[in-house]
Design a protein around this nucleic acid. Structure first.
Lengths: 225, 225
DNA sequence: CGTGTACCTCATGTATACAAGAAAGCGAGA
DNA sequence: TCTCGCTTTCTTGTATACATGAGGTACACG
């Protein structure tokens, strides 16, 4: 999640061992995604401290970062509320996501860009991933699309895409939990995209992307809870 | 700057009086834009404390926010470095900005959306603004384009646009300081955009936007210093 | 004179103590 | 019994103290 401007250490993994702030960030984020902190609920700093085992200073920084990424809403002197996902926001979100990925696909095809080998490896990793590791599946999926956008060669575009990831990850997580998203289908469509992009078939690639992104915004009701 | 997910108090002004964190944020941001902290330099927390008159806790939170917005790069155990703006990043940035504003313009025209009265008032405000208030001009310009994008009716798109503002504001600031951007020209083009959008003339509106956004990325040399 | 090492300094990362405001609970009056 | 207001308590906002690791300097050795 390189939306935050850190010196990227290169590893894009979920490094559990890092600073106290990182542990707090990972812990609270996982809690939100897994549903331990439901939408609309407030996360008290003290609770976050107990959960993650660090003191308030790094916890506050983690909460600030999660707010900047769109997981939380900070209410002055009230605390951090887990964002609700409304139906309209979901629609807006997928419209913007489609705009971004469409732009990337067009650029890749028109400029004849070569795809990085990461994309294929991510498909294999997706296949090898145990189906019960929901967080892992979501992460792999995120990395695939991120690599796709990155292949367009515009770093700012990747940053924008990363900025959408907070609600997208939550949607994906709920989607898998509810049994909507089938990982096999997703992976198959990913391979289709690679096939179309490899030969710079813009029309076909766009069609696949649109179909792929049209699947998800079904589960509005589940989210606002 | 609603990139940060706060409960918007409604006023979009630069409220100097707020929490200590806000004062620190405003102070350091202004210092970066005015050039007191040149690109590539490190901002020590102690210095930021002296400048803004608050203690390290709120200063750290302000620096974290500025990093999330793209003003600073946080180096672990090294501190906060003012981001350099490279030529390629500038190119990428304007490509993405054009994508966003183009999308907004298309949507406004195709869906026959009415423009908010704010747009005209912002033009008047721009005209009335004293030319020596560079920060104020940059802010007005930002608000105009933000309102334009907002008129498309997609909140996420506005958030994405806001996320681009850090480097855009810096470019605009340098542009004015160096005497590149003429405020009269900018304002005139703004009025042209409004005219084209009011009658939903998509082709003309797109042409104006492209011309308007093509002006700026001239001053690569000035920025990386 | 150049280089390497050890120590020292200082900035950041973390923890904790203090201040202030908000919300909930309690009591008195209507 | 309901309502208004006060007090109490708890949470967040801010300040400061302590821990840790990076970088610089000085000294010794080749």
């Amino acid at each position: 999640m390189s939306s935050q401007t850190f010196v990227d250490t290169g590893d894009n993994s979920v490094s559990q061992e890092g600073s106290a702030r990182d542990r707090a960030y990972q812990g609270v984020r996982a809690g939100i995604l897994k549903g331990d902190f439901p939408p609309g609920s407030f996360i008290e700093e003290a609770v976050a401290c107990e959960v993650t085992g660090v003191s308030r200073s790094p916890v506050r920084e983690a909460l600030n970062r999660l707010a900047a990424e769109g997981y939380l809403e900070l209410h002055r002197r009230r605390g951090a509320m887990v964002c609700r996902l409304s139906a309209t926001e979901l629609r807006d979100l997928y419209e913007v996501r489609l705009m971004v990925e469409t732009h990337a696909v067009r650029k890749i095809c028109r400029e004849g860009r070569t795809l990085p080998p990461d994309l294929l490896r991510l498909c294999d990793a997706h296949e090898a991933m145990p189906a019960e590791d929901l967080l892992g599946c979501v992460e792999i999926n995120r990395l695939f699309h991120q690599a796709l956008v990155a292949a367009a060669g515009n770093r700012v575009l990747v940053d924008v895409f990363d900025g959408l990831q907070a609600p997208l990850s939550r949607v994906a997580m709920v989607s898998l939990q509810q049994g909507f998203g089938k990982t096999e289908v997703i992976e198959e469509e990913h391979r289709e995209m690679i096939a179309a992009l490899s030969v710079h078939d813009e029309a076909r690639a766009l069609a696949v992307v649109e179909r792929h992104l049209a699947l998800m915004p079904r589960l509005q009701s589940v989210l606002s809870s």
